[in-house]
Design a protein around this nucleic acid. Structure first.
Length: 495
RNA sequence: CGCGGGGAAGUGUAACGGUUGCACAUCAGGCUCAUAAUCUGAGGGUAGUUGGUUCAACUCCAACCCCCGCAACCA
């Protein structure tokens, strides 16, 4: 562990407070929970790494951080995937959930809890939540529509193509009607709109906030929060006191943010982090923003629980400019990338090269370019040249004065990981320039010593700021630059 | 007229009503501590199109063209 004698700088402009100002010292950070109907792809790796960088950053600032991830296992999609693979649902869910758990080591993630929604404690918690909602917010209504057994979905008349399912041209959807529970979302429209408008629920970036607001202003409708047991094939969280229904998967999935903390089973942990004093941050993808900024908020209001403070919405990764899709066969396996290029190189690409607020592209060509330019030639080479100079002149490192770059705080507060890293890379470039200016190989004596000591301090400062992003590399360099400094193998060999 | 986002050097990206900045790539020099690395310098953009507001527009407004998401079970 690093002893953080860290200085927390003021926002460098002073007039505007950073979103994540350190006034609150407790943080609860979550990733969304992906379906486990297939192995994880690079898109989820992006989210996990972003959330991890935020969690590490606040921990290093000395805050009390709880970080949760997990899997969404109650979806009908999992049942369908199990049928396709001809394995029992539980077996399939276990198999893929463990693949997602493997990401923790592969990407060097630091979540405290991995919450699986098929687990007993989650089911109990979800049911407790259901019972905690205001009675008048949940009501039964008969629901009817054209149902395609192929898709397991309802369609409207207009969506059908000449009476046939758009996905299954050989199926004519049946008119089906069943009774479901509905949630009275309409009761909360005004309140949610105001929460978002006033940033009490801060949605980052603004474009996403505007998108949600415009959606809300079109008028919210009550939504169905249960499915019949037959339709769900017996899979899902049973509705309390109604064996004929299971919860709509999103209703139980959203409560993962509570049950990960022990809601319904370990109230102590839950009360510690899901309280008004904790800054609660959800990191989510742009595809599920409505569930988080509308449904989830309404659900919490109904249950009388505190609300999250910030929802950071990242974009999607395209591959060579195309949307990731199984049918196109361009799904990128994060395990393959890490195996080939390493954990920190992968983290670096995701944080630096994918714009935080928009979609970004992944390609191996680009990956190699960034790897060589920033990691091999930039960081790695700087460390090599300074280490060699120090080794030749028997320089011993003393503990440097460690400070966070002021701009780093600002950018991390805005979730602009790419900008935060640019700040650090500016330091690297300045150190390189300094070496060329001072030409230490032409110096000797005190002058040489002073120059090398300055360079060591610079490296230490770089490493200090690098820890939330490239933890393993930071650790390595930190070791190399403490005590007698020795030259070592390249950190990032050119590829 | 469903909603929303975006068009800027070869590529990827900032800020901004007042000389388009940065990174990678390219080219020319310098250096030798370093991973053919590093440093200095250069070339390259009439900012999608058209019109408007203004002393001044990449920036504000309008129209159009093109790309891309979402449209209520996709990280």
């Amino acid at each position: 562990m690093y002893e953080s004698k860290c200085v927390i700088p003021r926002s460098h402009r002073g007039e505007e407070e950073s979103i994540l100002s350190n006034k609150m010292s407790k943080f609860y950070i979550t990733t969304a929970i992906p379906y486990v109907n297939a192995a994880p792809h690079l898109g989820f790796a992006l989210e996990a790494v972003q959330a991890d960088a935020v969690a590490r950053y606040h921990r290093l600032l000395g805050s009390n951080v709880f970080f949760a991830s997990g899997t969404d296992e109650n979806s009908l999609k999992n049942v369908q995937a199990a049928e396709a693979e001809d394995t029992p649902v539980k077996e399939l869910v276990d198999k893929y959930a463990s693949r997602f758990q493997d990401l923790k080591q592969t990407l060097n993630l630091t979540y405290d809890v991995f919450n699986r929604t098929a687990n007993e404690h989650h089911i109990k918690g979800a049911q407790k939540f259901w019972n905690s909602c205001k009675k008048e917010d949940i009501y039964k209504k008969s629901y009817s529509g054209l149902y395609c057994v192929g898709c397991e979905e309802f369609y409207t008349e207009e969506e059908l193509i000449e009476g046939h399912c758009p996905e299954h041209p050989n199926i004519i959807p049946d008119q089906v009607s069943e009774e479901n529970y509905f949630f009275k979302l309409t009761n909360y429209q005004k309140q949610i709109e105001e929460l978002i408008e006033t940033d009490k629920l801060k949605i980052v970036p603004d474009t996403r906030k505007n998108e949600v607001l415009s959606f809300i202003k079109q008028g919210l409708k009550d939504f169905s929060i249960s499915r019949s047991v037959e339709r769900a094939k017996g899979w899902g969280v049973p509705i309390p006191d109604d064996p004929s229904q299971v919860m709509f998967v999103w209703f139980d999935a959203l409560t993962t943010y509570l049950t990960a903390l022990g809601y319904g089973t370990d109230e102590e942990l839950f009360n510690k982090y899901w309280d008004k004093d904790t800054k609660k941050i959800h990191v989510i993808g742009k595809g599920i923003i409505r569930f988080h900024s509308v449904y989830w908020i309404a659900m919490l209001l109904s249950a009388g629980l505190p609300l999250p403070n910030i929802e950071f919405v990242h974009g999607y990764i395209t591959v060579n400019g195309q949307k990731i899709s199984k049918s196109l066969g361009n799904v990128i396996d994060p395990f393959v990338i890490v195996k080939k290029y390493g954990t920190d190189a992968t983290r670096f690409y995701l944080l630096k090269e994918i714009p935080a607020y928009a979609d970004g592209d992944f390609s191996e060509d680009r990956f190699k370019e960034v790897y060589n330019a920033d990691l091999a030639n930039g960081l790695g080479n700087l460390v090599s040249r300074v280490a060699k100079l120090c080794e030749q002149n028997n320089v011993e490192a003393t503990l440097g004065s460690n400070v966070w770059c002021t701009d780093l705080e600002k950018f991390m507060g805005e979730f602009k990981f790419n900008e935060a890293l640019s700040v650090i890379w500016k330091l690297i470039s300045e150190a390189d320039k300094k070496i060329n200016q001072e030409k230490p190989w032409e110096l000797s004596g005190d002058k040489l010593k002073a120059v090398l000591e300055d360079l060591v301090k610079r490296i230490q400062a770089i490493v200090y700021n690098l820890r939330p992003f490239l933890p393993e590399t930071a650790e390595k360099i930190s070791k190399q630059f403490s005590g007698q400094i020795k030259s070592d193998k390249p950190l990032f060999p050119r590829i």
